[in-house]
Design a protein around this nucleic acid. Structure first.
Length: 395
DNA sequence: TCTGGGGTCCTAGGACCC
DNA sequence: TCTGGGGTCCTAGGACCC
């Protein structure tokens, strides 16, 4: 049985590239998407020009501001990115139904047995890449391999804008330093470095058991394309880092109320029911705590969830005698409406539906909980800024 | 003047039941 | 009156990814 052929494809400096496409005067300039250099936050995407100054995604905006003082800092237009992202994936699906979306700008495709229309798999990959670039108007990088890991690493080697085929996957891999391997993060890296290991081949030679567990499963799993697993559990969360640390209890509750309102509307719109709720706080010293509790019954009702959320937050703030920098709320154990037992009623649902209708018509903030209204009075602008800043990182 | 937001997966300990 | 071990559920926290 021949090994599967996997294509990995992603959009180069996605958010920054979109901004340049929409405003060609930005071409060739260091564009940094994520926020303003005096804000709390991190860089989402830096253009290649900005990267030359040492700016990269995940870097605090203030640091980026120092490294690249004349950089062009943008908040980002996430609705635009998500539209382009959908075009990108639709385009890929024209070539194969087996497309695993990994994020807004990245996917794996199974090309096994698909290339009979082309002289070779490489030609097919080339065609997919060119078509995607023409469709969205942005440069993409792509990698071919015999495993997802191989394909992903090939893409890394192909950046920016190239297509790379890892033929001798195992040889290629063993030369790499460990931080290049997805799944090996800062923590694991530190431990492995402490053991005197820097490259994959050293790991294989000195600690074959670890190599077998960490690396090998990615390579020759079963001889067929590894399907993306459906997530074992789903969750949805909303969180906010305050512009300034917050000590006021009422204001904290107002933020929580606002975030929970957003989650509740999201769940209701999708007819999803939460079984558990988690509240998260981060104090000014960055220490972070969470507290979860099961809900009495699966629900999307704000009132029902608020009772629980409020209690969790009360308990959490007692952990430290410090102001807070973040509050967040998450729902878990998600059930779909059709899977619910018929006796689970939706308390207060008539009222909820009415409220959502008003939100739909006049905007999310047109009607809100009395608690969350406090935020409007205190800093309407800043709150709006927080609402808009929801996105994932792109490289 | 550090350190976002939205996810998934895993581990470990305690409670509880048999 | 004391003592097992296994299974399962629940919660807290950490590692990692984009």
């Amino acid at each position: 049985m021949s090994p599967p052929v996997v294509l990995h494809i992603d959009i180069d400096a996605f958010f920054a590239a979109v901004e340049v496409m929409l405003d060609p005067s930005l071409k060739g300039k260091p564009v940094i998407v994520g926020g303003m250099p005096d804000e709390r936050g991190v860089v989402c995407t830096a253009s290649y020009e900005a990267r030359r100054y040492g700016v990269h995604s995940g870097m605090p905006l203030r640091t980026a501001g120092k490294k690249c003082p004349h950089g062009i800092f943008l908040r980002g237009r996430y609705h635009v990115y998500s539209r382009i992202s959908r075009c990108f994936f639709d385009c890929l699906r024209q070539f194969s139904p087996r497309v695993d979306e990994m994020s807004v700008d990245e996917a794996y495709m199974d090309l096994s047995g698909m290339s009979y229309l082309y002289p070779s798999v490489y030609d097919m990959a080339q065609k997919i890449k060119q078509t995607a670039e023409r469709t969205i108007g942005l440069k993409v990088s792509a990698g071919l391999g015999f495993s997802k890991l191989g394909a992903k690493l090939a893409t890394e080697a192909a950046k920016p804008g190239g297509l790379f085929f890892v033929g001798q996957e195992r040889d290629f891999l063993s030369q790499l330093s460990l931080e290049k391997i997805p799944g090996i993060g800062p923590h694991t890296l530190l431990i492995l470095q402490g053991m005197g290991i820097r490259r994959v081949w050293e790991l294989e030679k000195k600690y074959p058991a670890i190599w077998k567990r960490v690396i090998a499963p990615h390579l020759y799993s079963s001889g067929k394309y590894p399907q993306k697993r459906e997530p074992a559990s789903r969750s949805f969360s909303r969180e906010t880092t305050f512009p300034r640390d917050l000590a006021n209890r009422d204001l904290l509750m107002a933020h929580l109320s606002y975030l929970l309102d957003r989650l509740s509307v999201y769940l209701a719109d999708h007819r999803l029911f939460a079984g558990r709720l988690e509240v998260k706080v981060r104090f000014s010293d960055f220490s972070t705590f969470t507290k979860r509790a099961a809900l009495d019954f699966p629900t999307f009702s704000y009132a029902e969830m608020w009772r629980v959320a409020q209690g969790l937050l009360e308990a959490l703030v007692k952990k430290r005698k410090l102001p807070l920098r973040l509050v967040g709320v998450k729902v878990e154990d998600i059930t779909q409406e059709r899977d619910l037992l018929p006796f689970v009623s939706i308390k207060g649902e008539k009222l909820g539906a009415g409220i959502r209708e008003i939100k739909e018509k006049y905007g999310f903030s047109s009607i809100s909980t009395a608690r969350a209204m406090m935020l409007e009075d205190l800093y309407p602008r800043e709150k709006e800024g927080i609402v808009l800043k929801t996105a994932s990182l792109t490289k």
